[in-house]
Simulated assay, not measured.
Amino acid sequence: MTLTPEQRIELHGFNNLTKSLSFNMYDICYTRTTEERDSYIHYIDEQYNADRLTKILSKVTEMIGAHILNIAKQDYVPQGSSVTILVSEGPVDEAPKEAFEESPGPITGNVVAHLDKSHITVHTYPEYHPDAGISTFRADIDVSTCGEISPLKALNYLIHSFETDVMVIDYRVRGFTRDVTGHKLFIDHDINSIQNYIPDEVQRLYDMIDVNVYQENIFHTKCKLRQFNLDNYLFGHKKEELPPEEQLEITKKLKTEMEEIFYGKNITY
């Protein structure tokens, strides 16, 4: 929904609402040997090192119209990376009308707006099961903004920036601002689901569940890939190299891993 100038609320001072997007992505892989596991973790560390993550977050900053004040980044031993970007403030009255529009947002390009007292962070966590051969890569991204624009505008780009089997997405509006009469506003835009900001072509790829607390302005969406091709989850070999019974066993382990992450609980068969 795009607001006309007549529909926009005149505020008392700056818009103090904080909008926070937390995006957790998971990449699942099966590594048969210790050597394959170590190679997978090395591949992930190279694919999502601090320099590349900085480029991704810098693009997010550009898309939501902010300006970088400071970047802190670090690659860790034995694995993992972190990046934190502090972005600058700007005048609210220059924010565009389309800041309130429900849409997936661009994959590239700009959404012109100004933000205030905002930050963007990412942390990566390569992990593995000690016995089952499962290796999992998790990236946690947080985009926190003040003002009129929502960080959900960057969600489409973030989804396309990572190889994602399972996504867990949280969006929350915190605090309050005031109109010119002093009346408190605890949210300044209409939203009923994070799915409004995920393109249709992406939604067709995933099973999705919403758990929303509307009265608290808390929105939660979980996504799991619908189609499963074992070749996409084997690191270092192809499924035709494995006997059928091993293919079935590996498939069961991988699907169990994804379902446990998706539902947030251990599954016992």
Rank of each mutant, 00 (worst) to 15 (best):
S81H: 09
V92Q: 12
H67N: 07
V92T: 15
L69I: 02
N70L: 09
V92P: 12
G65S: 04
N70W: 05
S81N: 09
P96L: 09
V77L: 10
A95G: 09
P96G: 04
K73H: 11
S82A: 11
E94A: 15
E89T: 03
A72G: 11
I85D: 07
N70S: 06
L86A: 03
I68W: 03
G80L: 10
D93Q: 10
A95K: 08
S81V: 06
Q74C: 12
V92C: 14
T84W: 06
I71S: 00
V92E: 15
P96I: 07
H67R: 09
V92D: 14
S88M: 01
S88N: 07
Q74L: 06
N70T: 14
G65W: 03
T84S: 10
Q74W: 11
V83P: 15
D75I: 12
H67K: 04
V83Q: 06
E89W: 03
D93M: 09
I85S: 05
S81G: 05
I68P: 03
V83D: 11
T84L: 13
Q74M: 15
I85Q: 03
Q79H: 08
I85H: 03
G90Y: 00
K73Y: 13
V77W: 13
P91I: 15
P91G: 12
E94I: 13
S82E: 11
P78E: 01
I71G: 01
I68Q: 00
P78Q: 06
Q79T: 12
A72F: 09
I85N: 08
V83A: 05
S88A: 06
V83I: 10
I68E: 02
G90N: 00
H67T: 08
D93W: 08
S88G: 07
G90K: 00
S88I: 01
T84P: 15
I71F: 01
E89K: 05
K73M: 12
Q79Y: 13
T84V: 13
T84M: 15
G80I: 14
A66N: 00
P91Q: 15
V77C: 09
E94W: 07
V77T: 15
